[in-house]
């Protein structure tokens, strides 16, 4: 049954890794702007220059 020690230790270590990743992300400023990225991801990667005649609203 002592496998429980191992399993829980591993699970806590995994959780700690996520906490570390979170703190690192905050430090890099990834949480400073919570709006722009959500819009940015919707843009097409590359718009075709000749496409503009058809793109009317």
């Amino acid at each position: 049954m002592s496998v429980i020690y191992l399993l829980i230790t591993i699970s806590i270590i995994v959780a700690l890794l996520f906490l570390y990743a979170f703190i690192k992300a905050v430090k890099q400023g990834q949480f400073d702007d919570d709006y722009t990225p959500s819009v940015r991801m919707l843009f097409d990667d590359e718009t075709k220059p000749n496409d503009n005649k058809t793109n009317k609203d």
Partner: peptide, 14 residues
């Protein structure tokens, strides 16, 4: 915008 193929500008918002 139209010379540079950036008329998509007008597609996101009116």
């Amino acid at each position: 915008f139209s010379l540079n193929g950036l008329t998509d500008y007008y597609n996101f918002e009116k």
